[in-house]
Design a protein around this nucleic acid. Structure first.
Ligand SMILES: [Mn+2]
Ligand SMILES: [Mn+2]
Ligand SMILES: [Zn+2]
Ligand SMILES: [Zn+2]
Lengths: 130, 130
DNA sequence: AAATTAATGCAACAATGTTGCGATTGATAA
DNA sequence: TTATCAATCGCAACATTGTTGCATTAATTT
């Protein structure tokens, strides 16, 4: 089996995601790293972190893709079943760890993953009544 | 206010979406139209159809964006609050008009739109036990 | 039929993501 | 510590997807 290595770039990417309150896009991460490593390297690191279940990917209605650190403690296998909120004004995407949709599926489907993203106005932008 | 026109291309795009059992990507629509119109025109038509609430856009975890016709009858304003299923094997995306998530949001958010996409194996692919 | 302007085609561009390959480096064993 | 070797990286090249400006075409109204 393939073993995974802790490289400077991987550590840096993870640190950026850890410090961020909102989910970040590839480009945002790249900017924050300030040319510590190549664009392509970041894509590959993100892929690895997802496979290792350390971060998760969030895909937004407008086509944006963002990444956030997982906050579930020590669970080996898990589904990212919480909701995400995407603000139409400030374009920030945040994990709503406590919002989990309930739903009833037809029996003949096998669900492996869910993506539940809500969009509208976040508390910040709602207050500044845009 | 801007009035909207019924053009040959628009009619054709809508027809393709009407006939399809699954949601289609821009590229898939373009191929089916067989150079009836330009790529760019299709993007613009899709935008218009979305504004007119005739079709809706579905964004998948893998970054794919697809479009499907709305099947709600005569509702003026509506939210596309049904789920979509994205098959990891055949990559088809279908509307699950009857699956609607229920969830509880914190009060300080204003939700305008939701995107609820489940992925896994569709009935077809599940049967052919891949 | 003429006028108005929404819609189109085309070219050019931007953003995002992927692939191949030779060079580098982290982890492990000698 | 040093040698080893595969995982990771950098770079260049490419693919896909979506956007914009502008001159031209065509749908709708009068
Ligand atoms: Mn999350
Ligand atoms: Mn649908
Ligand atoms: Zn906001
Ligand atoms: Zn399938």
């Amino acid at each position: 089996m393939k073993t995974t290595r802790n490289t400077a770039a991987k550590t840096a990417v993870l640190e950026v995601l850890e410090k961020s309150k909102t989910a970040l896009s590839h480009t945002e991460i790249h900017k924050q790293l300030n040319d510590l490593c190549d664009r392509v390297t970041i894509y590959r690191i993100l892929d690895r972190l997802i496979n290792e279940d350390i971060i998760h990917k969030i895909s937004n209605l407008d086509g944006t893709v963002k990444y956030a650190k997982c906050h579930h403690l020590h669970q080996r296998v898990h589904i990212h079943n919480h909701a995400h909120f995407s603000c139409e004004n400030c374009h920030e995407i945040t994990c709503l760890e406590n919002v989990k949709p309930s739903y009833i599926m037809p029996h003949n489907y096998k669900v492996n993953e869910i993506n539940f993203t809500l969009s509208g106005l976040c508390p910040n932008c709602l207050n500044s009544n845009i």
